[in-house]
């Protein structure tokens, strides 16, 4: 891949001229990248991002075998609570969605629903090689090969399976990116909603839910 920023491994085509963007620009996004954002708002955004980064609530939803590596994070040995992270059982209260391992087509539908129900800003962590290129299940008839076609991924954690230490490293990388204002996958999702929806609907043939799940 030529994308050096590693934020968004797949870049969808630019929206056509004259199309109205779906998402308004948030002051917390694009720190330092936008000269039109006043300095005061940028300082405020830095504070907001610090709060967001230090209180990541992870959605407790495991899609595949990788979720077995998430459980040790709450135990005494790894203890993710010292970073302010906690497991939340409902998408309404979570900020981070972890796609843990292989993702079945059937699960993808539920994952999209959950992702869209989460309040913004929200982040997606792809865990394990299955989310990156299909992993060892690349030729299975019902698992997806590339997560970033369907959801905006902020951080990938490679491995099959990555150990809990790798997860913690990935999370601290995510925190860094949030503090710098670089983890804007959710914004990217809204900006390119049509592209993502097209990909999703190509795969989910029995689309029986609203186009966007509030």
């Amino acid at each position: 891949m030529t994308d050096t920023k590693r934020t968004l491994p797949v870049l969808p085509p630019a929206p056509p001229e004259g199309a109205t963007p779906h998402a308004p620009v948030d002051d917390a996004c694009f720190l330092g990248e936008r000269p039109d954002v006043p300095k005061l708002r940028e300082a405020l955004a830095t504070i907001k991002n610090w709060f967001r980064a230090n209180s990541l609530w992870v959605m407790a939803y495991g899609t595949g075998c990788g979720s077995i590596e998430l459980r040790p994070l709450t135990t005494a040995r790894f203890d993710m609570e010292r970073f302010g992270m906690a497991m939340r059982p409902t998408p309404r209260q979570s900020n981070v969605l972890i796609i843990s391992g292989y993702l079945a087509t059937k699960s993808l539908k539920r994952v999209i629903r959950s992702y869209e129900q989460m309040p913004a800003p929200k982040w997606v962590v792809g865990l394990g090689s299955c989310t990156i290129n299909g992993g060892m299940y690349w030729d299975s008839y019902n698992t997806i090969n590339r997560l970033d076609l369907y959801l905006p991924v902020d951080v990938y954690i490679a491995g099959c399976m990555p150990r809990p230490e790798a997860l913690l490293a990935g999370f601290s990388y995510l925190m860094e990116r949030i503090k710098k204002g670089e983890a804007n996958g959710w914004h990217h999702y809204l900006e390119n909603l049509d592209w993502y929806k097209e990909n999703q609907k190509k795969l989910i043939t029995d689309w029986d839910m609203p186009d966007y799940n509030w």
């Binding site: 948030d26 917390a28 709060f51 209180s55 302010g84 309404r92 129900q117 309040p119």
Partner: peptide, 14 residues
């Protein structure tokens, strides 16, 4: 306090 601030600074609410 961080959790409270974080929830306060969420951009969308349903």
């Amino acid at each position: 306090f961080i959790d409270l601030g974080k929830n306060l600074f969420m951009r969308s609410a349903t």
